[in-house]
Amino acid sequence: MVDAQDSFDPVGAQNAGVELSRLLWVRCPGIDPALRSLDLLLHGGGFGLVALDLGDVPPKLVRQVQLNVWFRMRRAVEDTSTVFVVLAQETNTKSCASLVLRMEKEATEWSLPTQKTGKKTAHTPGCLLESSSHFAEMVRSFLCYKKPLFIDRPKVLESANATRFHLNSNKYAKEDLTPTGIVSAVGSP
């Protein structure tokens, strides 16, 4: 896990099922050391999954990374069992990526809407962050041909390559009330 902005939450990852002793976390102070560390990791080889988190890096900075850098990374993991994942606000890897997924948060669900918190007290015990609904769409895949789709195009919910899912709060999720994490799947990717 190459963390370009040092934003990784180990407690949340452990709650989500990550075995922290098997996770190598590289805390980088910026995009340049992150890319250098990533290059060393990929060429060192042997990891099952290498993730580069550029989620908090401003897109204009990530755009400055030249395409040959991504080609170099792709070349390093080609013909190996390593999966290389880049998380960013925009797609920057262009044609180097075998699979491009777009994921957006649609709404956040609270246990009590604002207008119903009638009592103006210091505490709001009834209002809890419960879950959020997300939209995911496969923009491009080498394994599954589809029409080219532009990032800024409006979402096509009926697309066979799109899906919706819910994420639950770590603290307050009630497993008996929510049967499964994926509540709506439109089509199958």
Binding site: S21, C28, L40, G45
Partner: peptide
């Protein structure tokens, strides 16, 4: 052996205290 060398190289980039596995 290769991992040890890779980790040492990355540590020289990001600092020795910024690489490892997290322990809660």
């Amino acid at each position: 052996d290769k991992l040890e060398l890779t980790l040492a190289r990355i540590a020289s980039v990001v600092g020795e205290n910024n690489i490892g596995s997290a322990e809660i």
